[in-house]
Nucleic acid binder design. Structure first.
Lengths: 131, 131
DNA sequence: CCGAATCCCGAAGGATACTG
DNA sequence: CAGTATCCTTCGGGATTCGG
């Protein structure tokens, strides 16, 4: 799925960019991060996630879980009990990923205001609300 | 657009996840990173970008440039010459962003093989190509 | 309780022709 | 050269229903 980039068929600097995109694609979905964060704190069940990750639909929860599991970011453990019980746990690799994302969080918090200001200035100058 | 999340209306851990998403949304587009990387090395012109960022269309180049400029990540300088000349430069904020992304690059490179393996294993076990 | 299957919509993105 | 405008396809994701 849209995974055509090899990061090899191009040159120098753009190859680095491609590597970044590779990483971003793992968590690019709307819900990946939320699920990852919830699962990083220990085994969590399907219905728990459904409540904790606010706003997610059953469908997207399932799909995102599958993708994360497929990439080796989540471990899925099924208890073959009468009422089914499934636990999801973040793998070490996923925890490392989240640690790397903290750098981004930091950046976002440092520049949140600057970005808002830039947007406001741009919109004012280019008459989004008026002209 | 699609910027409805406030990172405030929810609780604890998910708020952190939301902050991460905020940052990711700045570079979530397919071409943002490629353009940022190219522009970080100094002023670059429209047509240069069109060649350097391989595979990008005229339309997407324009759109992504506008968004990056709006967020204050790119500076756009127009030379009112007879053949139009426009230069794009990454702002300090954008360079900082790219530095933060290095952590992600690092993660991606460390786990690239593990992820591929996980995918292969998953697909084998769940019969994507065969059953 | 956990999930698969189906339908549907809007946004992202590609191709191309036109313009100052 | 540096875009804009238009059309069209694809994909992410929401709502809902069915099943083990």
């Amino acid at each position: 799925m849209s995974q055509g980039n090899d990061c090899v068929t191009i040159g120098a600097a753009q190859a680095r960019a491609c590597t970044v995109r590779e990483a971003l694609d793992r968590v690019g979905g709307k819900w990946s991060i939320g699920i990852l964060v919830a699962a990083a704190r220990g085994p969590v069940r399907f219905t728990e996630l459904e409540r904790e990750v606010e706003g997610i639909s059953r469908r997207m929860l399932t799909l995102t879980l599958r993708n994360l599991e497929r990439d080796g970011l989540l471990h899925r453990k099924v208890y073959p009990t009468v009422p089914p019980k499934v636990e999801y746990t973040a793998t070490p690799m996923a925890r490392e990923l989240y640690d790397s994302l903290v750098a981004l969080t930091d950046w976002a918090e440092r520049h949140r205001l600057a970005i808002s200001a830039a947007r406001a200035a741009y919109d004012r100058e280019h008459g989004v609300t008026d002209d």
